[in-house]
Design a protein around this nucleic acid. Structure first.
Length: 212
DNA sequence: GGATCGATCGGCT
DNA sequence: GCCGATCGATCCG
């Protein structure tokens, strides 16, 4: 009696809405018959060709083709020659949009994931887009995989809802682009969650020091 | 064909 | 905070 797998309609919606709705849901990887999973605590949206921080800014290429495909599929790419990043494709075929999964709170298969990640501490196990792909055995073989069915061993399940006052939006981190793209608050995190990979709360000291 | 670069991470100063 | 690892995709000529 597992929770239902999030379906195509869930992903075939405005990307910012999907990004917000993914917080709190459970990302599941079936690996050699074992469930590895974590709660989604940090995501980033990449929307359209006008988004200068998106891989789709220069149009469709072999690497980013999945972003232009139908919703509810994975877009996985290799970065810095050593890590992978997982995105979930949104909206409609032909329009490039996806959500980068940046961090998870470990739930199931913790010992197996730790074995895969050099016995990383619980808090660091899935904290970061490269780390979570390593722990969940996600690589280029999953690029384009349908995540609306259990077929490829990767999907998201309905789980705990996150109340509005627990959600923080910030600009995306570690990205390049024009000032407009960099300013967009398209990063969504669960406020103050220990497994978030970047700023997880508004910094009161900074706010105070910036005030006259 | 060759040069450059990156939605990262871990180790070190 | 800074630096190097490491390699496929992309861009330039």
């Amino acid at each position: 009696m597992n929770a239902p797998i999030l379906n195509r309609d869930f992903y075939a919606a405005p990307t910012l809405q999907v990004a917000r709705a993914l917080l709190g849901q459970r990302l599941v990887r079936l690996w050699q018959g074992q469930r590895l999973s974590g709660r989604i605590v940090e995501v980033e949206a990449y929307i359209g060709r006008e988004d200068q921080a998106s891989h789709a800014r220069r149009g469709r290429t072999p690497r980013n083709a999945a972003m232009f495909g139908p919703p509810g599929h994975a877009y996985v790419y290799l970065i810095y020659g050593m890590y992978h990043c997982l995105n979930l494709v949104t909206e409609t075929a032909g329009f490039p949009a996806a959500i980068l999964i940046r961090a998870l709170e470990p739930l199931e298969g913790v010992a197996l994931m730790q074995a895969q990640r050099g016995q990383a501490a619980w808090r660091d196990l899935l904290r970061g887009p490269g780390r979570l792909c390593q722990a969940l055995h996600i690589d280029l073989s999953l690029n384009g995989a349908d995540v609306c069915s259990p077929t490829h061993g990767l999907w998201a399940e309905a789980d705990a809802a996150v109340p509005e006052d627990r959600v923080l939006t910030t600009p995306r981190i570690h990205v390049r682009g024009d000032a407009e793209s960099l300013a967009r608050p398209w990063r969504f995190v669960i406020c103050d969650h220990p497994c978030v990979s970047g700023p997880a709360s508004l910094n009161h000291h900074q706010s105070l020091s910036l005030s006259p």
